[in-house]
Design a protein around this nucleic acid. Structure first.
Lengths: 336, 336
DNA sequence: TTGTATGCGTTATCAC
DNA sequence: GTGATAACGCATACAA
């Protein structure tokens, strides 16, 4: 796979490499004739600049490193689409890495991104990440970083997330307004940001409507956990009249558990999930959803990052950007 | 984001860059003391080799370019996981690109991969790709390429696919054996390889059992098409007693259409889809599936490609590797 | 308007 | 064992 280089063009046209280089970049100091000559030759022999050499020379790669826990997850793949779209518009390419929810993989992956000289990093933290000191040191070294979705308060970088609090609040409020009183919350690992924000929204809504917060109605699960059936069964012993599930997988598992027990939705128990699965509404027409603005999160995060990269304004402190979720009520859950 | 370089180490330790380079690569010609000195310093100041410089020098990037139509598709994201796993084991990294089912995007993306000096390419063709001449010329230039899933007969490169013929045959056979006679086939664009292979399997099974092939029972759809409802309705006018759907989306749409019309599955109509959606079985316990070995396809394809890259044996002609699918019958579709 | 020289970080080929 | 030097492909400061 050897391609033609500037040197080849220079030799063929009996010019110097610098002239060719300038002609190719359409520099004003090159005569029109020479430009034409070079450009024609380049096109004819399909010259393509070696981006590796360019990166080395210019000390920038025009690559954004994206680290997500999993690609095989509709939310993240949509976020990536958003990132890609925004990056494409501004001449950047996206290098995708997966941490597989493992802190070690996240580190390996982070180092790769740095070794490959990514111009900036877009990160959604793995669920097993508690130590962000490497990220902190990177940030101190002025590597542009933007966190999205799963963020960390210990890092002083721009963050783009769904309005998790608002989404959980709205969902809970909806359940309360339609007559529910014992709203269970089944959620993901307790130490990641989105869990806490959603829990806070859930709790705030309960308190707002004078319903006490009952920790017996809240259960945490692991991402790795394959079977959440037992946890749901355990919750069911608390006789809830509604579920707020913090992920696609949990919502769907709830659905399965309720069906298995012939518990009617929404007649007996209401179900709202934080779900972005495209077929969710087909699963059961009564599965309501807090839909996350995945594309928008990706777009915003990429824009933030590229702004950071290009301005190099380390003063630019945008802080947290929170994008509204959308509550899609698929069937009235009003108690009759 | 400036990291320490070999030069920095050399200066600090009053050595030459070549000595440092050799010490870092643990060359036998460097004295143990010097090695220790260099290695200690490197570790202390967290030296990391610049992969861009390395790539330029060695004319290889240890990067595999992967081009898929869409990431937000369970099949492809699983394939990517398989690729990543295999690549990781052999010291390669994966650069993921999406063609978004567009030929133009595929070209842009292809050029990016080349410009970034990917050591080899793993490609699943976009559905709008009919012209493979660029790929042909790349292949002639000895760029290692392996196709997977959506392949092309015009390209003389190794291919890794599901056994689409076998999968469709087995599914159709199952339907026939359980008493179905009018088996409709709703499928994806006609000109991509998997469509033709699946159609051939479907047809072969019909003929094997003495059922004629009726083209009125076959319908093609586009990937871009948002609403396939009309096509399904059209098929329903042919009074089929079974559906073989060629994708997740089509299977799910069939399901929705049947439910809407209160057509019982499998009592009235049987449904088998080429589906890998994790929640498919929850959608309807009667939705049977031809499951594709996504992980395995990814692994095999990556291994093939890395073999190609490393042996540089352009004689190595493995041809087509076809990995069995799995027919998962979720409810007996026997006619009573 | 064009050419010469230098450097990005690394490795390889020579010397010594 | 170690060091000087060149080279990968490109871009630019400086000459001419």
């Amino acid at each position: 796979m050897d391609s033609i280089t500037i040197k080849d063009i220079a030799r063929a046209l009996d010019l110097s490499t610098s002239t060719v280089s300038r002609a190719l970049r359409d520099s004003y100091e090159i005569s029109p004739e020479t430009k034409r000559l070079v450009l024609d030759y380049a096109k004819q022999f399909n010259y393509r600049p070696n981006q590796i050499a360019r990166s080395l020379k210019e000390n920038r790669s025009r690559i954004i490193g994206v680290i997500v826990p999993q690609i095989a997850n509709n939310f993240f793949s949509e976020v990536i689409n958003g990132i890609e779209a925004a990056a494409y518009l501004r001449g950047y390419y996206v290098f995708i890495f997966q941490s597989h929810e493992s802190y070690e993989r996240e580190l390996v992956t982070l180092r790769q991104a740095i070794d490959r000289k990514a111009d900036g990093l877009l990160i959604s933290l793995s669920s097993s990440t508690s130590d962000v000191s490497l990220l902190q040191s990177l940030q101190e070294k002025k590597l542009p970083i933007v966190l999205f979705d799963r963020v960390s308060a210990e890092l002083d970088v721009p963050c783009v997330t769904s309005d998790n609090f608002g989404g959980a609040f709205a969902a809970t409020e909806h359940l309360i307004e339609t007559g529910r009183r014992r709203i269970a919350h089944i959620t993901i690992p307790s130490y990641i940001s989105i869990t806490q924000e959603r829990l806070a929204g859930y709790r705030a809504a309960l308190e707002r409507y004078g319903l006490g917060y009952d920790e017996n109605l809240v259960r945490y699960t692991d991402f790795g956990q394959t079977d959440v059936g037992p946890v749901i069964n355990d919750l069911l012993t608390q006789a809830p009249d509604a579920f707020l599930a913090a992920s696609d997988r949990l919502a769907i598992s709830c659905l399965a558990a309720l069906k298995k027990r012939n518990i009617a939705i929404p007649e007996t128990v209401s179900l709202v999930g934080f779900t972005n699965t495209p077929v969710a509404d087909l699963l059961d027409p009564a599965l309501s959803a807090v839909e996350q603005p995945a594309l928008e999160i990706g777009r915003m995060a990429a824009q933030q990052l590229i702004d950071l990269i290009e301005m190099k304004a380390d003063t630019l402190r945008v802080g947290r950007i929170s994008i509204p979720t959308r509550l899609v009520v698929r069937a009235s859950s009003r108690l009759t």
